[in-house]
């Protein structure tokens, strides 16, 4: 893969800086983001509080007060900008970054999939075909946002791209697997939500008692596999 030099850097408030590779969901742009994210994670730059990778951008949140005190007479933003530019130049995009591969069991039983029938009918597919299309690809976790542990994954097979529901549900149960456009995702917590719900996983995507509270990390690769309702209930008990 070749490095795309086309990026822009801009302030995201007076205490954060964003680098973006454009307004499109592409694997190439996200690979740039993840490579830079991993590079910066390893370097631990003084004053950096958070690194937030998104589809095609990375945002660095910093402790502005601490950095002002440490660098009197300098504009912190300008310093961060040049550090970011330097980092982009240093990131070796050719190197293979190892992603975690995670398989997630999903039960597509209609009792757990309130939108599956309608979605299949919309695309003139059988329910089995939808399940087959949803479980076939290896998805990429492009980013995590919206809720703690909510992974935006893509890309869904074109034949089952489906727009969000026009009126969001007030409560989607934790573990629900949904589709929104070309994205798929799993609700980590009970929450309101507008994605088309096609199944549920018995796994806990988010658990405050775990050292790593989130099952999925940005950059992970995910494969779904279909399980029966009985298996779902067995796994849920674990």
């Amino acid at each position: 893969m070749s490095a795309s030099p086309v990026y822009r850097i801009y302030p995201c408030g007076d205490h954060a800086i964003t680098i973006t590779w454009g307004n499109a969901i592409t694997e190439a742009a996200n690979q740039q983001v993840m490579a830079l994210y991993r590079y910066l994670c390893e370097r631990k730059i003084t004053g950096v509080l958070d690194l937030i990778p998104a589809y095609s951008s990375l945002t660095v949140v910093y402790d502005l007060v601490a950095l002002i005190k440490k660098n009197p007479g300098q504009t912190v933003y300008t310093m961060m900008e040049s550090q970011l530019q330097q980092a982009v130049r240093s990131v070796e995009l050719g190197t293979i970054t190892v992603s975690n591969k995670i398989t997630i069991p999903v039960c597509y039983d209609l009792s757990l999939a309130p939108d599956l029938s309608a979605l299949a009918a919309l695309h003139q597919l059988t329910i089995e075909e939808v399940i087959q299309l949803h479980t076939a690809p290896t998805y990429r976790v492009y980013m995590i946002g919206f809720l703690p542990g909510f992974a935006y994954m893509g890309s869904v097979d074109e034949r089952i791209h489906t727009a969000r529901k026009s009126s969001p549900r007030t409560k989607v149960p934790a573990g629900s697997v949904g589709i929104a456009g070309e994205q798929t995702g799993i609700y980590p917590l009970d929450s309101p939500g507008g994605w088309q719900l096609i199944g549920q996983t018995p796994l806990r995507l988010f658990d405050i008692d775990r050292t790593d509270p989130c099952l999925l990390q940005p950059g992970d690769e995910v494969q779904f596999w279909s399980i029966s309702l009985t298996e779902y209930h067995q796994l849920k008990k674990l």
Binding site: C12, G13, D14, H15, A16, T18, T20, N23, A24, I25, I52, A54, Y55, S56, S57, T59, V61, M143, G145, Y152
Partner: peptide, 13 residues
Amino acid sequence: TTELISTAVTRGT
């Protein structure tokens, strides 16, 4: 006219 893809936001945005 185009929808924006998600990006980070901060306190005060």
